[in-house]
Amino acid sequence: MILEVGGVAFSYRSKNVLDDIEFDLKRNEVLSILGPNGVGKTTLLKCMNAILKPREGSILVEDEDVLKLDQMEIARKIGYVPQRCETGRLTAFDAILLGRRPHIRWNISERDLKIVDSVIKRLELGSLSLRYIDEMSGGELQKVSIARALVQEPRILLLDEPTSSLDLKNQIEILGIIRDVVRGHEVSAVMTMHDLNLALRYSDKFIFLRDGTIFATGGREVVTPETIRDVYGIPAVVERYNGFPIVIPLEEDNS
């Protein structure tokens, strides 16, 4: 197991947001955290790299509890792609180079430059590399954000709604990149998702959150009409298309 989350609980001003979260993840797997708005998906993601401090529990990355590490040491193990990234007058190359921050002592080395260059080639960002990020589209910016997390050389990649605010083509492209990177390297990814169908297509494991705890977890088999009804409160059917499960939400009246 590359990631083992045990008994994580988080409260905000004495209100329990997350309780008894427990799951694990193998190498080269993508996990999607699913659930309605405000259920604590992003909070769980932020607890995993200690941006938020869980009240109790442990988060083991390769058998080491990250909650006992310093923020900079965590950043060498876990890359984080927030939902929104601010822009400035910075080239894509410099923005990605920033991902080397946890490894840089005083100045960048040749190795840092080479890692950035190889990730840029890997994500086919070569033509963007010297463009300024404040002139980029949402899709391009998201790729830069992912590239920045990758040059951290992380074991785990955390992505907060990586496809929100992207068009259809960019959604498919970004998730494809995440899947390929995870399969091709020794990393795993945990992402929060709203789109069940995209999640089904690009993830290996699923967690449904309800009322701050895990309602269901497992492979594709957990994505059932019953689970969706219980978690999101709307009826749905799960059909198959070319062997892939497809979720079709229904209107309340039709049930």
């Binding site: 190359f93 080479k114 260059d117 390297h185």
Partner: peptide
């Protein structure tokens, strides 16, 4: 985690 085989010092940068 990241393969460095094709990483070079980028001339333009």
């Amino acid at each position: 985690a990241i393969h460095l085989v094709d990483g070079e010092i980028p001339e333009e940068y």
